[in-house]
Simulated scan of single mutants.
Amino acid sequence: MVEIERKYLVTNCDFITESNENFRIVQGYLNSNPERTVRVRIKGDKGFLTIKGLGNESGMTRFEWEKEISITEAEALLQLCEHGVIDKTRHHVFYENHLFEVDVFYGENEGLIVAEIELKSENETFFKPNWLGNEVTSDERYYNSFLSNHPFKSWK
């Protein structure tokens, strides 16, 4: 129930040709407090309820609990969510034995592309593809829960 991940900005769209699969994600937050976010997500044809805890000092490690729920339940819960739904396409890119999840955002977050990699430990090494830019792991502005309340388009 612990998630260890690093997050990066994406500098170009070269990842698309390396993408093995992609799917649409729509998600909202029942609670966007960083200490305990509660997320409702529709990912492709499945629904999920996820609870995440506050990250450690590096921002890489935090508690995560997720349960699959029906699409009907997810759609109903999305109606109860805070203002600001996240809409994105997630691309799976396998690179040098690691999976990068690259999110291309739409709507009020259009123009933002972020890649995440889940690791077994904070010290695990991995190779970075040429389309990976600056690391933003510890920058809470790039958390989806923050983006739902403070969209990327409003930053400029």
Rank of each mutant, 00 (worst) to 15 (best):
I117A: 06
E118S: 07
S58V: 01
E57P: 01
E101F: 03
F127N: 13
F100L: 09
I117R: 02
H98P: 00
E82R: 06
S32Y: 11
T37F: 09
N130K: 14
G44A: 12
D45Y: 13
R41M: 15
H92K: 11
R39L: 13
L132V: 09
E124R: 00
F94L: 07
I117W: 07
V104H: 05
N56E: 08
N97P: 00
I69N: 03
L78E: 10
V104Y: 13
Q27W: 07
N123M: 11
T37L: 09
S58N: 13
N33T: 02
A76Q: 14
E21W: 08
F94S: 03
E118I: 00
W65N: 10
P129D: 02
C81K: 03
K52M: 10
Q27K: 02
C81L: 12
E21M: 14
T37K: 11
E35M: 02
N123F: 08
Y95Q: 02
E108W: 01
I25A: 07
F23S: 00
K128P: 05
F23Y: 15
T125Y: 10
D87N: 15
A74L: 11
I113A: 04
N134Q: 12
A115M: 13
N109I: 02
L49Y: 15
E64M: 05
I117N: 05
F23D: 00
I42R: 15
R41C: 01
C81Q: 00
E118Q: 09
E73D: 15
G107P: 02
A74F: 11
Q27C: 11
D45R: 15
P34V: 06
E135H: 10
E82H: 09
V85E: 08
I86M: 11
A76V: 03
Q27N: 15
L112G: 02
S138G: 12
V114D: 04
R41H: 13
L78V: 00
T37C: 11
G84M: 12
V93Q: 02
L30V: 04
R90T: 04
E118F: 05
K46T: 05
V40E: 09
N134R: 10
V85Q: 14
V104A: 05
R24C: 11
E116G: 09
L77T: 03
T37P: 10
K88F: 00
T89G: 00
R90S: 03
E116F: 03
V93I: 06
K67C: 12
E21I: 04
F127K: 09
I25T: 07
L99H: 11
C81A: 07
